[in-house]
Design a protein around this nucleic acid. Structure first.
Length: 486
RNA sequence: GGCGCCGUGGCCAAGUGGUAAGGCAGAGGACUGCAAAUCCUCGAUCGUCGGUUCGAUUCCGACCGGCGCCUCCA
């Protein structure tokens, strides 16, 4: 199989092929920077990251653009309330978004264009639509897209444009639109827009861009007339992406996006996230209770188009699953190799695991299946290690470590867990002194003292494992998850 | 009302027209001073009722239950 992705336009799985062989241009709708993004937002963004990683893993040269919407009704409103410009207002939210993305192990995207940086391109784009008869200005200086001029409208969301006509009043005096269904490309400036420094000159007077316009222009400017994949949350199908298609294709005459991928919304504790339920958790709120690798694991535990119920119980289960991966990795690293060691069959298992992993990922990024391939490998390789007397061959160890690393290049879970467990020298020495002290107590069969030391370390999240080769210690959770449930 | 999704063991979650991956939790066992880690063993008739079929959890229909979008919310 080769990579197949679900395409919202056709509602079917389609083989992914980029416009230009070997090179992929992707545009993902990013956050509106008016507050701290919550875990639901990050389900979508982690899926972006997953796709980013997987395409690179497959060898594509990827240009991945994720915008930052920094002009928007709410942003203007909130900025004006606090007497700031939208730029000032948005700055901390941009920073927190990037910080949270980093916390969750997202690799940097190639570009984060901001709407405010593309205003000249936007007005030029609107002019183009006006010239083509697809947009018109109203007396107040706003510009609207004429839906009746784009027969394809409604194809993505499968909405019948005629059914969108609410009531009989075609001329809504509030908007003066030709057709109630037409949407704003350019919005005439209001006083608050001026206060918040959110108004620009245009052929239609001062104003600011509409949301849909922003994404089209940034995608076109940063990637080209046709993007290979356009991503978003499922809520964006209508009207946002429908409108993007209408504008973009109306202006360029080219297919705007070859593939539409939409990420299903997340539930929290079985319920839709909402501010009134108080379940719109942010990344910092979650890292207080668990660790980033566990959050990422949980977000990837279900395929992106299926419902995912984010629960604290699930978070703990993910934390333990991640620990199992770490334990396996450590075990491999400390298993001695001997050239003459008989093959333990691990190399073959690693190959099978990678094949199954790839098959699952190729099947519309089936992360649940991919994780299963990984865990089957862990189990089978552990069994093989149990059976290998003391040492394994170089080939077995290298292939196992390579397979593990390779799968994690896509999943990004182990690397996060590892990063959270780095220990500096003084800390390492302190722990090792305690471990040595306990070993001494054990050799005297003073188990009371030995257990006291073990309990003390356990309280810090450090778990000891006695083995014939001595006592090992490990962090059972990352520093970020310092208050994780025991 | 329009469009769409889902209902798989205690929890989460894959999957296939021929009797069901994986993770977490649980029980028993091996190992251990005790643990931890690891391994072995154990557990599901796949929402209900019909239909198609030699055979359905997988296809079709109805019903029940849950959910999403249709409000510039990923």
């Amino acid at each position: 199989m080769s990579l197949h992705l679900h395409d919202t336009l056709t509602r079917s799985l389609r083989r992914f092929t980029p416009l230009r062989p070997g090179r992929v241009g992707i545009y993902g709708c990013g956050p509106t920077v008016y507050g701290r993004a919550h875990i639901g937002n990050f389900r979508a963004f982690v899926v972006y990251d997953l796709l980013h990683r997987y395409l690179e893993w497959l060898g594509y040269e990827v240009r991945f653009v994720v915008n930052l919407t920094d002009v928007d009704d709410r942003i203007v409103e909130l900025a004006a309330e606090t007497g700031q410009s939208i730029r000032e207002f948005a700055a901390p939210h941009v920073r927190s978004f990037l910080a949270d993305a980093d916390t969750l192990g997202m690799r940097p995207f190639d570009s984060h264009p901001r709407a405010t940086e593309y205003v000249p391109e936007m007005t030029a784009f609107v002019s183009r639509l006006v010239e083509r008869g697809l947009a018109y200005a109203t007396s107040d200086g706003s510009v609207y897209f004429r839906i009746s001029g784009f027969p394809e409208y409604g194809r993505l969301s499968r909405i019948d444009p005629d059914a969108l006509r609410p009531g009989e009043r075609v001329a809504d005096d509030k908007y003066e639109k030709d057709d109630i269904r037409d949407f704003a490309l350019w919005k005439a400036a209001r006083p608050e827009d001026e206060y918040a420094d959110a108004a620009w000159e245009s052929p239609w007077g001062r104003g600011r861009p509409g949301w849909h316009l922003e994404c089209s222009v940034m995608a076109l400017s940063e990637i080209g007339d046709t993007v290979d994949i356009h991503l978003g949350g499922e809520d964006l199908v209508f009207p946002h992406h429908e409108d993007e298609i209408a504008q973009s294709e109306g202006a360029t005459g080219e297919t705007f996006a070859r593939h539409w991928v939409h990420v299903k919304h997340l539930l929290v504790e079985g319920r839709k996230m909402s501010k009134s339920l108080g379940n719109t958790y942010t990344v910092p709120q979650l890292t207080e209770r668990s660790e980033p690798a566990a959050i990422r694991h949980l977000l990837l535990s279900a395929q992106y188009r299926s419902e995912l119920n984010f629960t604290f119980g699930g978070l703990e289960a993910s934390r333990r699953a991640v620990q199992r991966l770490l334990d396996f990795r450590d075990r491999l690293a400390r298993t001695p190799t001997r050239p003459a060691a008989p093959p333990a069959g691990i190399e073959g298992l690693a190959g099978e695991a990678l094949a199954r992993f790839r098959e699952a990922m190729d099947d519309d990024l089936n992360t649940a299946g991919a994780l299963a391939a990984l865990f089957v490998f862990v189990k089978e390789a552990n069994t093989a290690l149990d059976g290998a007397a003391g040492a394994i061959s170089e080939g077995d160890r290298e292939s196992a470590e390579a397979a593990l690393a390779s799968m994690d290049e896509v999943l990004g879970v182990l690397e996060l867990a590892l990063a959270g467990r780095e220990v500096d020298e003084p800390e390492r020495e302190r722990i090792e002194v305690l471990v040595a002290k306990r070993d001494l107590a054990r050799s005297r069969r003073d188990f009371a003292q030995a257990d006291a030391i073990r309990d003390q370390l356990a309280g810090e999240g450090i778990v000891l494992e006695d083995s014939p080769d001595g006592t090992r210690w490990k962090h059972a959770r990352s520093r970020a998850g310092s208050t994780a449930a025991r």
